[in-house]
């Protein structure tokens, strides 16, 4: 696998889109978190002084892991976009054919792409780790690993987004269509998810049946659902109406979906003509 990854690196290290998207993502992560940080400090902070809600700092230690993971999660579309471009490029340049002709097996080709998706997820998670730590250092609170599980959820979300990108690329093969389908699917699933969430709330309030937020059981919303903004005084007020968060059920769904994405992408690439 190491030699395969080295070859992937040869393919991307001189690629402009790779560099640009990477820079966008890194700058985006810092900026997004800074915005959340500063909104909280300047606006919520002002409400605080009016004495409406009690003091809350989303970037203090223990809160920082959850806040950074949640805020950064909105940018995970960028690495997914990069993966779609890298894989569909192979189809439009027909290098997917040439790599096999030159001696790779189909299995090696698809597995190294998945390994890339995994590595990108790990790198994004590391970035979250660094960003969360740096912002928290300014909070003046003591270091704590409480709530660190949210960084793990972030990794699951990132890996899910990237594996859907792999699947869409292998299925569609054309860059524009693949990106289009990715966004359409993301949007469509969000709408369905919201409807399911409303239904979940109704079930709970009208019939006392608490199945959790069922919108979180869909392929991409599962990993979205794991990441939320930290509990705070404003959020607590609304919480009583919401169904329970069954974290373990959602994590179970995320892992099942991940296995499905991996299995299906692999099967598709192994069986089809190139």
């Amino acid at each position: 696998m190491r030699s395969l990854l080295k070859i992937e690196w040869l393919k991307i290290k001189h690629y402009g889109a790779f560099k640009i998207l990477s820079i966008f993502f890194i700058v985006g992560v810092v900026l997004t978190n800074y915005i959340v940080f500063s909104v909280n400090k300047n606006i919520i902070g002002n409400i605080n002084t009016a004495g409406l809600v009690s003091s809350f700092n989303p970037y203090s230690f223990s809160n920082t892991w959850q806040t950074t993971s949640y805020a950064t999660g909105f940018l995970l579309i960028l690495p997914a976009l990069l993966i779609i471009i890298l894989i569909t490029n192979e189809f439009s340049f027909r290098t997917s054919r040439q790599n096999i002709i030159d001696g790779w097996s189909r299995q090696e080709f698809i597995e190294v792409k998945m390994a890339m998706a995994l590595i990108i997820s790990v790198l994004c998670t590391l970035l979250v780790l660094i960003t969360a730590s740096v912002f928290a250092l300014f909070s003046g609170t003591d270091f704590s690993l409480n709530g660190f599980d949210h960084v793990g959820y972030f990794f699951l979300k990132s890996f899910s987004y990237n594996m859907v990108a792999v699947l869409v690329s292998v299925l569609i093969r054309r860059t524009g269509f693949a990106i289009g389908l990715y966004f359409i699917y993301l949007g469509a699933e969000n709408i369905i998810s919201q409807l399911l969430d409303v239904w979940s709330m109704k079930l709970r309030s009208d019939h006392g049946i608490d199945l959790g937020s069922m919108g979180d059981y869909l392929p991409m919303n599962a990993s979205d659902g794991l990441l939320t903004f930290p509990d705070n005084p404003l959020k607590s007020m609304a919480k009583s109406a919401l169904p329970t968060d069954y974290y373990w059920v959602v994590i179970g769904f995320v892992i099942i979906y991940l296995f499905f994405f991996i299995w299906f992408s692999r099967r598709r690439f192994m069986k089809s003509d190139l």
Partner: peptide
Amino acid sequence: LETPNFYHYL
């Protein structure tokens, strides 16, 4: 085979 298949940006 058929066409020259290379990475266009390299």
